Simulated scan of single mutants.
Amino acid sequence: MTGVEVVLAALAAGAGAGSGDVAKAAMMDAYTGFRDLVKRRLGGRSIEAASPEVLRGELIAAGVDRDEQILAAAHQVLALSRNVYVQDAKGVQIGDHNTQHNTFG
């Protein structure tokens, strides 16, 4: 996994985590710190509104994929995300280029 892929995976993992138990709270704390590091490196630009392709380019242009502090924070988010369970999720995707269709009734 390249540096930018680690950062993108951690952004996705943190954005998808809910709140509630201790594991989720630790995950969200780590994600918030990580996200703030990325935003500062991008000059405060919003990372949530960008498409994945645009965000990837902005991350690479800003050198986020080579920033040791950001990469360490991304790895921490990914490690903590393994302890967050998705039992209450309405839909979960793992991997790249997925298609998911949900019907809730």
Rank of each mutant, 00 (worst) to 15 (best):
H101I: 15
G43R: 06
Q76Y: 03
H97P: 02
L80T: 06
V84H: 07
E68T: 14
L55Q: 07
S51L: 12
G43C: 08
I94P: 04
A17M: 11
A73P: 06
L80A: 05
H97M: 07
I60Q: 07
G91L: 13
G57Y: 03
I94L: 14
A79L: 10
F34Y: 03
T2I: 04
M27N: 06
L37F: 05
T32M: 08
V38L: 02
A62H: 03
Y85G: 14
A73V: 08
S46C: 06
A9L: 01
A61R: 14
M28N: 15
M27C: 11
Q100K: 15
S19L: 10
A23K: 10
V64D: 01
D88Y: 10
A25Y: 03
A72F: 04
V86W: 12
E5K: 00
E58M: 15
E68R: 15
A62I: 03
Q93P: 03
L37V: 00
A9F: 00
G57I: 06
E5H: 00
S51A: 15
I47L: 04
A50P: 09
L55E: 03
G33H: 07
A74Y: 01
D65L: 01
A61H: 04
A26M: 14
E58C: 04
A25L: 14
A23C: 08
G14E: 04
